[in-house]
Design a protein around this nucleic acid. Sequence first.
RNA 1: GCCGAAGUGGCGGAACCGGUAGACGCAGUGGACUCAAAAUCCACCGGCCGCAAGACCAUGGGGGUUCGAGUCCCCCCUUCGGCACCA
Length: 818
Amino acid sequence: MAYDPHAIETRFQKHWQEAGVARMEEKGGGGKFYCLEMFMYPSGKIHMGHVRNYTIGDVVARFRKMRGENVLHPMGFDAFGMPAENAAIKGHTHPKAWTDANIATMKGQLQRLGFLYDWEREVRTCEPEYYRWNQWFFLKMFERGLCYKAKRAVNWCPDCATVLANEQVESGACWRCHNPVVTREMDQWFLRITDYAQELLDGLDHLTDWPPEVVTMQRNWIGRSEGALVDFPVAGQERKIRIFTTRLDTIYGATCLVLAPEHPEAEAVTTRERRTEVEAFRAQVRSQSTHDRTTSRDKVGVFTGSYALNPFSGEAVPIYLANFVLMEYGTGAIMSVPAHDQRDFEFAKAYDLPIRIVVQSGSLKSEDLTEAVAADGIMENSGPYDGMANREALKAMAEEARKRGMGELTVTYRLKDWGISRQRYWGTPIPMVTCDACGTVPVPESELPVLLPMDVTFTGKGESPLAGHGGFLSAVCPKCGGRARRETDTMDTFVDSSWYFLRYCSPKETEAPFDRSAVRYWNPIDFYIGGIEHATMHLIYCRFFTMVLRDLGLLDFGEPVKRLMCQGMVIKDGAKMSKSLGNLVEPDEMIGKYGADSVRLNILFLSPPWDRLDWKEAGAEGAYRFLNRIYATVEELAGDLAGPVEEPAGPEVDALRRKTHQTLAKVTAELSDRLKINTAIASLMELTNALQGYLPAYRGTPAQRFVVKEAVESLVRMLSPFCPHAADALWELLGHREFLVDTGWPCFDPVIAREEEVTMAVQVNGKVRGQVRVPSEASDEEVLRVARAIEKVFAQLEGKTVIKELVVPKRIVNFVVR
RNA sequence: GCCGAAGUGGCGGAACCGGUAGACGCAGUGGACUCAAAAUCCACCGGCCGCAAGACCAUGGGGGUUCGAGUCCCCCCUUCGGCACCA
């Protein structure tokens, strides 16, 4: 009978399910292994990117389980989020119905691929049993002051009168009505992630099993920067403007002070004569779409009419507002030093402000500059600091500022507090009410969850559907018992994904977000796989949550992930596979053609897990061919190999036997550590080739039976993590009854794997002139003697002086001649 | 602009510590089987010169270190990814 993947796959998927092979419990003693893939957004159908991500995880989970480790390998759904709501707006389907249908489809697709998930632990973030704990965490953070309300700019579509998420803004226009988007300040809830900025940064040093590029991205994202805060008094007023600078040493070169257009003091420093112009400028910036504002590099500003006094030199410099100064960073105000900062230089050129060199790094003249000079140098034009090295001057100036109470050294971060408010329906309601008498009041814990109502209508216009839902809106103030209005914003879905890995440990827990002992047993995650697109957001938020939960006394660890792998993108015809590009490849058709095992094998074999992968269907056929070959070989041999065999005595090691043990060594090493899965598969193919090459001489002698049986059984067992259905079917053909995932991983004998003879290249002046076959323990002298005897080598050496002879054991001989 | 990763046959890739470049697979070519085809099996498969033995050139380009460089160092080019007025 030929290899029939469909019959095999449906049969074994049923067997596995009946036997509950994926079920996992905490067991005392022995090693645990938490193998996790980023859970899935239920967008509709799975594509090759999912297949790749989850197949890698499945290989590792199955391998670990075969090795006897207690493996937790769950899957769930990141089920809240905007696409469900967009679908509702467009298509008259409820987000819940849309989500449930997609989950059903995608779960079926995952099951067809044979992934070893413990589905009893499945988590869906849109269920109240889950999201109530988002609310609970929110309240806990609120109690601790880690959660606050503030105004922040959002994308606003005036035409639809609604807030837009960044991804709903398409080159500055609304995704629905294509009218320009503006920014608007709205009250929002924030989590104080900046309190953890330093710990998040310091922790990166210990994440040695994370891809270094992810660590770098996080480091840049957090963006620690050491500088100084300096107060500039406003001439003729009592007020001071506080600026942030990393180049305090250049302060004598400041020829202007620049505030962000939204700076709270902007109005106060605007003189009556300048009011009209300043207001026009601010209005213009305000009306600018987020897109335009971030794309334009032109430096535009306006003079406020006021002057600030340089606290070091006493010099009066004009105060401007300008578009290139950001309110979100530092203090929203800078001192402008055109000679030493490129942006300031451009601004000075545009507004004809003086340019004054204060750090001399050569023989530069202020009037000759064509760009700013950031280099170190010797101070000039800087009063008492002239002649000092600029770095020394910076320290001395900081000291002076501190003494005179006009500034201090400080650290700022690019990382901002995490705004979690979303003016959306399909998310976790924020458990807060507003009471006219008491203000903003948290919903008591006992009243959780604040349920998301199901009976809502979607228009895509105006406020979130929650704001129009009377039943949801009206609440009783927990403080005074009076009438109150419920918060209608919902939470960012990154909140959901910040702790789902903890929920998997005890998914049915009703009294707490998780069972502490179960969480302690399984965590931290030993191996986490997902796309690099989550390098900053999700992977910073979940680290932050873990730290907060630790500080709340709920966890006893602060870093959630031990080893991280980011699988490479799946590319099709040179472009990223994505829904928007319409080049998605779904696995179903290919599973139909070749079976899930071939699809799995193909996607693993095509390139190393972390490299980009160019999807080519032809490879699936190659994988299918390979499985067919193994199947035919095993079928042919099964009868003859049935029954016991005896290990041959004597020192002679058969070549096939050596190959078997070498392959075992290679595959074991790859799967337990390096995870270059593509080469592990290549070595399985080599073993298959060796086995087939051996068969013509196979006569069924006891020694041969042993060697062949060992090779065949090792091959089948090693195949199991990659192609679990086919491997189990083959194992059955070989007369075994158990599932391979429940059997042990085969051991190898390094003595048998060792080569007794090696081929060494013989070089003359670095060029290969021949080869020698010598015992692997041969001495250098012996190797040289044999090497010299090669005719071609001899010819190259003749008449020349050998000045050096190098022997690299088992690899190379090199004669250096003159 | 800044930061990071990568560039190897027709293609995907291999070469883990600097040691025979091209494992394994795909595609292709020739052959066997077949009435024929598919499937399968066998052989070949970087370029160039040569009847051959053999020589030479080849890991994006250019320099360097080394007995020896795909691998290390410097400069440049290209592609991809991240950040993007961060003061």
